[in-house]
Amino acid sequence: MQRSIRSALLSAFAALALTGAALAERAAPPVDQVPQAIVPVVAEVEEAAPAESNAERAKTQPGNNAPFWRAVRDWSPQSDTTSAVRGIESTVLIQPFVQYPGSRFATAGEAWRQVRNQWIIPYGSALLGIVVLAIALFHWRKGPIGQEANSGHAIERFTYFERAAHWANAFAFCVLAISGIVMAFGKFFLLPLIGGAAFGWLSYALKTGHNIVGPLFAVSLLIVFFTFIRSNWPRREDITWLRRAGGLFGGKEVPSHRFNAGEKVVFWGGVLLLGSIVVGSGLVLDRLIPSVALLRSDMQVAHMIHAVAAVLMMALFAGHIYIGTIGMRGAYRAMRDGEVDEGWAREHHALWYEDICKGKISARRTERPPSRETVVRG
């Protein structure tokens, strides 16, 4: 029995083996139809063509100036091209990438342009416009400050030297402010009115005057600072003046010494702080600092600092100019003639007037006999 079962299993296994072999032989493709191994085909790379010139590139891709800028980037004194750039940066035609406050990460020249066009020009013009508008609205609503004083008794407020220093500085400031405004903002409000040719000549003339008058402004500013520093030292009464804004929006004016706290803010903030920044950066831009090699990046930073400080200085001095001319009765006469009426001194600088009455301060400091009676009644 067992032998018959074993014989049956062997017969079945043999049959399965023969059947599998037959099927495999039938499914196998002919030898000549066996796929060959996949061999990657590498296209032959043509040898790179020589660099195109800008003119050749313009024929195939108009407007693509890549060859020109590659030549600019790779320029060196040993190349067969020439450059108008001279000095220590003669080999630097495109500046490295930087990021100034308010700019994107770009070449230094482009970053400077972004700061100037996107921040200094729009916000600077807005600040100056707001200041002028605020002064105009104040004058329209309030009018000149103070009363007409004509007591017949004059007090000397400024000496000849003080007035000469002030007017020299004022003249230089006006020239610099007007020329600076035209150079910075003129193309927006003046160019459409007078045309490109006239605006070009005017801008060139103002730029030349700006560079010439700049050193005069620096010298006169230094003289003004040392001339008036003694009368501008902060005092305890200045806190009260600042807290009440000098009585500008109230009734009675807050008593002050020879210069009130508002004038001292102009002196320390405008003359000393902003004036020093404007003068220092201006000397860099004029290349008047000896033995200093200035790079283009130095000039760009100096220009941004100069422009910001100048705009703030003009905004601050605008209020000072307004009060000293049409904003306060009798103020312009003080700087024109050097004298003020006794009533004016009592109204606007009561503590200074009291010191004169007590003999702490002389009512006249010059040798010239007064044109009017210089008597102070106690």
Score class of each variant (00 low, 15 high):
A168E: 02
N169T: 05
F171V: 13
L176A: 12
A177R: 05
G180C: 06
G180S: 10
G180I: 07
M183L: 15
F185I: 02
F185M: 01
G186I: 10
K187I: 13
F188K: 11
F189V: 15
F189K: 02
L191N: 07
I194E: 11
A197F: 08
A198G: 02
F199N: 03
F199V: 03
G200F: 13
A205Q: 10
K207C: 02
T208Y: 03
G209C: 09
I212G: 06
V213Q: 04
G214P: 10
F217E: 01
A218D: 05
S220F: 15
L221S: 15
L222F: 13
V224N: 13
R230P: 00
N232D: 05
W233F: 14
P234V: 10
E237D: 13
I239Q: 01
L242C: 09
R244C: 02
G246L: 08
G246S: 10
G247Y: 11
V254A: 06
P255I: 10
S256T: 14
N260S: 05
A261F: 09
G262C: 07
V265I: 15
V266R: 00
L272S: 04
L273V: 15
L273I: 15
L274E: 06
L274K: 03
S276I: 14
S276P: 00
I277P: 00
I277C: 07
V278I: 13
V284S: 05
L285F: 09
D286C: 02
R287I: 10
R287L: 12
L288M: 13
I289M: 03
I289W: 06
P290M: 08
P290Q: 07
S291P: 00
V292N: 03
A293N: 12
L294V: 04
L295W: 07
L295A: 08
R296N: 09
D298N: 11
